[in-house]
């Protein structure tokens, strides 16, 4: 067995690395191209530094995004809302545009850590860290976001569905940087809800869930349900979505749909909760989120 216990000293960063603070995006991409696998991007550092202190990763090069103002900010663009990858969570939480246009994201972001954490942490970091429990991820999945990745080779767009590959793993290549998140304009009169269960009110989710739906003629039309911390990546509850689509949202239907959630999740037992608990909690959260979404979509709810 390793002497791992003797390798952590959280007073300091007990590893050697070189620190880079590029002034332009181009410079950053060049550094990435050069160091690739050996480099790690430093955005807010609230995940990265923890992992370095825990000796889970030992990057040789750290590339800080601190000087790259082009990676920050929120604006309305053609085709939706653009959020720079290095935008602070606190800025998103306080943004008028987000509160009005994407209240689902607003709520998910507000559920992340404490104010101190949100002052440091960024949305790009939350996604690229690829924790199955990332709070913004479920919201962005329900919103159908697209992620913009860039390398010296050029840009590509990754639908958020295809972004997460496992705990800590994303579709980004080592030379790629996430530059922005683009959220398409939500449909008219949509309903939404974000729900999170943690051990306390300041915790990584034991389970989180986001729902976005619309009603047409009293029936559920568009419907997206995303869950976190119940599979190796954030997941869509596709079976439940299908079951709901085109149907009238009766309490029985909601109940059935929430039971179907188990088909798309594969929770594990860890310090935050048992697998069995996560199954039960997922059903309860989805039921709650569906009811609230239907109510918000003008369907009266229950």
């Amino acid at each position: 067995m390793s002497m791992w216990i003797n390798r952590i000293d959280t007073h300091i960063l007990p590893i050697n690395f070189q620190y880079h603070a590029p002034k332009t995006l181009e410079e950053a991409l060049k550094l990435l191209a050069e160091y690739g696998d050996e480099a790690k991007i430093l955005s807010g550092g609230t995940d990265l530094l923890v992992k370095m202190k825990q000796r889970l990763i030992e990057p040789r090069h750290i590339i800080s995004l601190r000087n790259l103002t082009e990676l920050r900010g929120i604006r309305e663009v053609e085709g939706g809302i653009h959020i720079g990858a290095a935008t602070k969570l606190r800025e998103i939480e306080r943004s008028q545009i987000i509160a009005e246009r994407l209240p689902l994201l607003h709520e998910a972001v507000k559920a992340i850590g404490s104010i101190q954490i949100r002052n440091m942490g960024t949305i790009g970091g939350n996604l690229c860290n690829a924790s199955p429990a990332a709070d913004s991820a479920v919201a962005l999945m329900a919103l159908g976001a697209e992620l913009h990745a860039q390398s010296i080779e050029g840009e590509r767009i990754i639908p958020i569905e295809n972004f997460f590959k496992g705990p800590g793993a994303t579709a980004l290549k080592p030379v790629e940087l996430l530059t922005a998140i683009r959220i398409p304009p939500p449909p008219e009169n949509y309903g939404w809800a974000f729900r999170k269960i943690g051990r306390t009110s300041l915790d990584i989710a034991t389970v989180n869930a986001a729902v976005l739906l619309t009603l047409r003629g009293g029936r559920i039309d568009l419907c997206r349900i995303a869950l976190g911390a119940v599979a190796p990546t954030p997941v869509r509850a596709v079976r439940a979505e299908e079951h709901l689509r085109g149907r009238e949202p009766t309490p029985e239907l909601i109940q059935e749909a929430s039971e179907l959630v188990v088909e798309d999740i594969s929770p594990i037992t860890d310090v935050r909760g048992t697998a069995e608990y996560r199954v039960e909690a997922s059903k309860a959260l989805v039921r709650d989120a569906l009811n609230l979404s239907i109510e918000r979509a003008g369907g009266g709810g229950r």
């Binding site: 825990q54 306390t200 009110s201 300041l202 990584i204």
Partner: peptide
């Protein structure tokens, strides 16, 4: 030994 997984209630709890 990580305090992130030793939870105490916060004021909000």
């Amino acid at each position: 030994g990580f305090i992130t997984d030793y939870k105490l209630p916060t004021a909000r709890d």
